[in-house]
Design a protein around this nucleic acid. Structure first.
Lengths: 124, 124
DNA sequence: GGTTTTAGTTAGCAAGGCTAATGAACTATG
DNA sequence: CATAGTTCATTAGCCTTGCTAACTAAAACC
C-alpha cells in the first residue's frame, strides 16, 4: 500500500494510475474485451466498465462491436491514448534514472528478477 | 496496480487493506500522531483523519491528547485492533505458505532483498 | 500582545472498488 | 425450432479513499 501511494505522488499527467495501467495493458497486449481487461487487472467487470467510460469520454480509447459475437466489445487504444502514454513513460524514465542511480548493478538485477516472480504470483 | 488489486482479493476480514496497513504501522512503530502516520503512508493528513475515524468508530484504535502539545493527538492500536491484525496475519501466512511453496530458495531470497530495496525507494 | 506557523479536522469533489440487477446475444436441449 | 439457460456488458447504488480549500485551536515567534 505504501509503495502504491508513493508512486501515485509521481503522477503528473491528466490520467490516474488506474487509467494509465489499463492504457498500458491495451498498448502491450492489443485490443481486448472489457471482461478480459477486468480479469487481467483483477477487478470486477463493472469496475472496468466505469474506467473504460472515463477513458472513452476523454478520447483515450475506442469501443467497437465484435462482428462475430454481438455481446462482446473490443476496446482499442486511440492515438491520443498512445501520446499520453508515451509522455508518461518519458516522465517515468526520468524518475527511474534519478532514483536508480543510487542502486548497484546487483540491486537492479534483484528488482528485475523480483518483478518476474511477482508477475507470476499476481497472475496465479 | 495489478499486484495491489491481486492482494485486495485475498482480504477476508472486515477491514480494508488501507485500514490494515495503518493498523500494522501502529503495531510495528508504536503510537503515532495522525500527521506522522499520514507521512509514513504517503497520504495527505485529511485522508488519514478519515481512515482513523473509521478505525476509531469501530474500536480498532484509540485517540489520546498529547499532554505536552495541545495540538497533537496520539493514536494507539486497541486490543480489538491487535486481535483483528493477528487474525489477518494468520490468514496471510496461510496464503504465503501456499503460494511460496512453488518458489525456490533463491527466488524467496530475491523477494526478500527486493522488499528492502523497495522500502528504501518508497521512503525516498 | 499580536502575528505567524503548525496540527488536526471539516467540507466537498472525484475516482474506483464492490454487489445486485438488467438487457441483449449466444448456446444448448427437448 | 422454441424455450431455457448462460454469458457479456452495462446500469444503479453503496462505500472507501484520494485530493484541495477552509477552519479552529494551540504553539511559537517577534
Amino acid at each position: 500500500m505504501r509503495l502504491t501511494r508513493r508512486l501515485r505522488q509521481e503522477r503528473h499527467s491528466e490520467l490516474t494510475t488506474n487509467q494509465l495501467s489499463v492504457l498500458g495493458t491495451l498498448r502491450t497486449n492489443g485490443p481486448q474485451t472489457p471482461g478480459a481487461i477486468a480479469a487481467y487487472e483483477h477487478v470486477q467487470p463493472p469496475s472496468m466498465t466505469r474506467t473504460i467510460n472515463c477513458l472513452d469520454d476523454a478520447g483515450y480509447v475506442l469501443r467497437a462491436p465484435d462482428p462475430d459475437d454481438g455481446r462482446q466489445i473490443m476496446v482499442t487504444i486511440s492515438d491520443k491514448g498512445e501520446e499520453v502514454l508515451a509522455a508518461e513513460r518519458a516522465r517515468r524514465d526520468q524518475w527511474l534514472a534519478k532514483h536508480f542511480a543510487g542502486l548497484s548493478t546487483a540491486e537492479k538485477k534483484t528488482l528485475r528478477d523480483a518483478v518476474a516472480i511477482l508477475e507470476r504470483l499476481a497472475a496465479s
